[in-house]
Computed example of a mutant assay.
Amino acid sequence: MNQEYHDTTVKMESEGVNPEYIQGWQGGYVCNPEREEQRVNEAYTAGYEDGLEKKTDGFADWK
């Protein structure tokens, strides 16, 4: 298990971060393909981009 992935997910969930951001971050972090266009939104995209960069502190704006 990737401890950074787990710890960041738990932290975001406990701080009430937008679930769309969390799902985007998780997908980006593990390099999953992005969602299909009609299911993408601003929070998801921001999370996906932060996840791709392995950025673990970009979620403050999504609480």
Rank of each mutant, 00 (worst) to 15 (best):
E42Y: 04
T9W: 07
G28R: 02
M12V: 01
D57Q: 09
G51K: 09
I22S: 05
I22Q: 12
T9M: 11
G51F: 12
V10H: 05
Y48V: 04
Q23H: 05
Y29V: 01
E42N: 08
N32M: 03
Q23I: 07
E49H: 04
D50V: 02
E37P: 01
E13S: 06
Q38R: 07
E34L: 05
P19H: 12
K63E: 15
W25D: 00
T8E: 10
E53R: 12
D57M: 03
D50T: 01
G51Q: 13
V30K: 02
F59W: 15
W62T: 09
M12C: 03
R39S: 14
A46I: 08
G24K: 11
E36M: 11
W62M: 04
E13T: 15
W62H: 15
N32C: 08
N41P: 07
T8Q: 06
D50L: 01
K55E: 15
E20T: 04
Y44F: 13
V10F: 05
N18K: 15
G47P: 08
E36N: 07
N41H: 01
M12Y: 04
D50I: 03
N18T: 12
D61R: 12
I22F: 09
W25Q: 03
Y21I: 10
V17T: 11
V17K: 06
Y48G: 01
Y44Q: 01
G27R: 06
F59E: 11
E20F: 11
E15P: 05
T45V: 09
C31M: 15
E37W: 02
P33C: 09
M12P: 04
T56L: 08
G27T: 00
K55T: 13
K54P: 03
Q26E: 13
E13P: 00
Q38Y: 06
T8G: 12
E15I: 02
E49N: 07
C31Y: 14
F59T: 01
D61G: 09
E36K: 08
Q23G: 03
C31W: 09
W62N: 13
D57I: 04
E36G: 01
A60M: 05
G27E: 13
E13Y: 10
T8F: 08
V10Q: 11
V17P: 07
E20W: 11
V30L: 10
G58W: 08
